[in-house]
Amino acid sequence: MLITTTGLLGMLHQLELTPTAIKVLSVMFRHSESGGVVHMKQAEIDEVLGVGQASMSRAMALLVERGLVLRSNGGRGHRYALHPAVAGYSGEGEMKRELAELQAAGTLPPINVPDYTRRPPRPGSGRNLHAVA
């Protein structure tokens, strides 16, 4: 069983993730190693969820844009890892050590929360909104 930090989970709603992106993140967490390495390709995650290639690509792009999923540079066949703050760890000591080392080295990637230039629409207003899934 892996443990994770809980502070970030309380702010997930601020990241404006689609339902599909949340499902992808959940599958990645369930199939990750301690520290967040995920040995699944996008197509394999889609096999678990059955959302289709286009929806899967949009969801993964959103997770990478927000910084919750880290993608290796390169061509096809990207390797994925969860951000250290959302990754699971085998124990609290490992989690604290990993986060402290990354922070001290200045290599802890940011998590990107959308910044509004104006107020967001009220939930349920239905004005100028479109579904993305």
Rank of each mutant, 00 (worst) to 15 (best):
T5H: 09
T5I: 08
G7K: 03
L8R: 03
L9E: 14
L9G: 10
G10Y: 02
G10Q: 13
G10E: 14
H13F: 12
Q14F: 05
E16K: 12
T18M: 13
T18K: 13
T18W: 10
P19G: 10
T20D: 09
I22N: 04
I22P: 15
K23F: 01
V24Y: 00
L25W: 08
S26V: 05
V27A: 01
V27Y: 03
M28S: 04
F29K: 09
F29S: 08
R30Y: 08
R30P: 06
H31A: 11
H31S: 08
H31Y: 15
S32T: 12
S34Y: 11
G36Y: 06
V38E: 12
H39E: 10
M40H: 11
Q42G: 13
A43D: 14
I45K: 01
E47Y: 06
V48K: 09
Q53V: 05
A54W: 08
M56R: 10
R58E: 04
R58Y: 06
A59T: 05
A59N: 04
A61L: 12
A61P: 04
L62E: 15
V64E: 09
R66G: 01
R66S: 02
G67C: 12
L70C: 14
R71Q: 06
R71T: 03
S72T: 03
N73F: 11
H78Q: 04
Y80I: 00
Y80V: 05
A81Y: 00
A81G: 01
L82G: 09
L82Q: 07
P84E: 00
A85K: 13
A87R: 06
A87F: 01
A87I: 01
G88E: 02
G88C: 07
S90Y: 15
S90V: 15
E94T: 09
K96V: 15
R97G: 08
E98F: 07
L99T: 02
A100I: 03
A100G: 11
E101I: 00
A104C: 10
A104M: 03
I111E: 00
N112C: 09
N112I: 13
V113N: 00
P114Q: 01
D115Q: 15
Y116H: 07
R118V: 14
R118F: 06
R119I: 02
P121C: 11
S125M: 13
S125H: 00
S125N: 11
R127N: 09
A131M: 10
V132R: 07
